[in-house]
Amino acid sequence: MEFLRKPYTAIVAGLIACIVLAYTVGGASAPQVAQRIAAPVPAAIAEAGGGDTVRARFSLPNGWPSRHPVLTGAEGLSESTRARIAHAVAALPGVGGISWADGDLMVEQHFSPLHCQDDVAALLRARTIRFEESSARIDAASGSLIDEVAAALRPCLGAVIRISGHTDRSGSEEANLALSRERAEAVRGALVRRGIPNAVLRVEGMGSAHPVEGLEPGDPANRRIEFTVVSTAPLVPTPVDTPGPR
């Protein structure tokens, strides 16, 4: 152990020991810790009005247990219910910051729709975002259309924008649901790369449940992406904007 007499070697060895210990010992006890934190969560969600559809996942996508839950299954709930659930879960002992699988922004429910929804609808009336056959990869030719959509959405950045993917009725409904959601997520990714913040975009896959009005459910023209302005964040005046008493 002669090498440990050099101070820097010893310090680095200590650092490595810390990392190894944290990963092995901390990692080994983490599942039980996460389980214990997660135990009272379903009851709290149900009490806050989430029923049993809203679930909290206490692990990262790669499976590592975490104290920071990701909440799923709140697609149909109002913003105030989501906020109540979030507060109830975050108030439980041991729970870290929470996030929603489909977007985080907490906003007011009542609003007058902004013109940008019409702008985007007008863009998409004439042209469509195309995908490669039975894949969620956006066709290269649709890039410029997405540029225009991003530009049209930019004035509405205070609002929550829902991206819904639709398919026609070919294939199984399960696969259609998954594909429509993947396509909506691909559009969200493309918009985020063009500077629209991830937090204001919600995605949902509708499958073939909502065909275009006046079209047969099997019509390929039902394959589409729709944008809806869900709600707007309240405008909070900054101190500069607010006239003082004097």
Binding site: L21, G26, V33, W64, H68
Partner: peptide, 30 residues
């Protein structure tokens, strides 16, 4: 952040405090 990384942060903090204290008490004299 996974739990083992939170453990790591705490351990590194404790390690840094320990190193600092050790240096302040014994390291300066020699």
């Amino acid at each position: 952040m996974p739990i083992w990384m939170e453990v790591l942060v705490l351990m590194l903090l404790a390690y840094a405090v320990g190193l600092g204290l050790g240096w302040a008490i014994w390291g300066r004299e020699s």
